[in-house]
């Protein structure tokens, strides 16, 4: 027969064992998460002889930091970086602006078709991106009156081979609109009415009262879009395959893979890959808390 003290003791012992188990598990998981990155990092620092040895030397004896500089000499990394920055920042600004405006209208105005519009925003999120790849490509191709096209969209390349081809399809996201609508719901309507009584115009109210109140929401969406767009590959590759001067960092690295099939050259490729992750990693470390909110908002309401 176990006395009360025995039960308590065994429970604390059990819970201590459980705690150890939990941290062991978390640690193993963490190693699995990080190890592949370290593998690439060591790879990026290897010398050519180290790579060619059989078996290859795993830990580089004299880290070749110059491999990172070599990336800029061998690949148009700077151009890719600029392209990535231009497209990513444009998409972020456009998406945050369009989402904030539409979200505000959906949350704070009564107008004809509001419910329909909101249902559409929810429903449109169900349409997978692969459905749009083919038609969107040709809509940009046959966009009238741009890129050498006539009014019927014939004759030129349309919006293809321009930054707009990468940016425009991501100018609005339905999830973004939904997210901002949720944030806008929390803005007190009394405040807006009071401002209207004082004679403030609608756009002034939006910019001076509403936007400052939802800054955390805007930041959440912005970091979300930034990470997503920096990492976007499929669409950007589809429209820039024939336009090397528009390729972004990940797309450029991928399309140039043919030049790095030789073992001797792989260190430079691995260094380039490391560089492609760096900007998001930095942005993410600083703005992590906003990212948490973005993932959990609009999720489950159990």
């Amino acid at each position: 027969m176990a006395d009360a003290g025995g039960i308590v003791r065994s429970r604390t012992l059990g819970s201590r064992a459980l705690t150890v188990l939990k941290y062991t598990l978390l640690t193993i998981g963490a190693i699995v998460m990080v190890a592949p990155f370290l593998d690439m990092f060591f790879g990026a620092l290897r010398t050519v002889p180290e790579r060619l040895a059989r078996p290859p030397v795993y830990f580089p004896q004299t880290p070749q930091w110059d491999n990172f500089a070599q990336v800029f000499r061998e690949m148009p990394m700077l151009q890719w970086g600029i392209n990535s920055l231009i497209t990513t920042l444009s998409v972020t600004v456009l998406q945050v602006t369009s989402s904030a405006m539409a979200g505000y209208a959906l949350a704070k105005f009564e107008f004809f078709g509001r419910m329909t519009a909101f249902r559409f925003v929810l429903g449109a999120q169900m349409f997978p991106f692969f459905l749009f790849i083919i038609p969107m490509f040709f809509i940009l191709r046959y966009f009238p009156l741009v890129g050498g096209n006539d009014i019927f969209g014939k004759g030129g390349m349309g919006l293809l081979n321009s930054y707009l081809a990468i940016i425009l399809p991501f100018a609005v996201s339905w999830h973004g609109v939904f997210l901002m609508r949720q944030f806008m719901m929390a803005v007190p309507s009394e405040l807006l009415d009071a401002a209207r009584m004082d004679g403030a115009g609608e756009f002034r109210i939006f910019f001076t009262i509403v936007l400052p109140l939802v800054t955390p929401g805007l930041a959440t969406l912005a970091i979300f879009v930034f990470v997503y767009q920096w990492n976007e590959v499929i669409w950007t590759m589809t429209v820039t395959r024939t336009a090397p001067n528009l390729q972004t960092v990940p797309v450029g690295i991928y399309l140039l893979r043919g030049a790095y099939v030789e073992e001797a050259k792989m260190s430079v490729q691995q260094a380039a890959i490391f560089l492609s992750i760096l900007p998001v990693m930095i942005a993410f470390l600083f703005l992590q808390r906003f990212y948490v909110r973005g993932l959990t908002a609009g999720g489950v309401k159990g």
Binding site: A30, M33, V233, V249, P250, I253, V280, F284, L285
Partner: peptide
């Protein structure tokens, strides 16, 4: 931060790694 590292990594990097 550790568990999210793969999630914020672009797919080309993931694949090559």
């Amino acid at each position: 931060s550790i568990y999210w590292l793969p999630m914020i990594t672009n797919i080309v990097a993931v694949a090559f790694i």
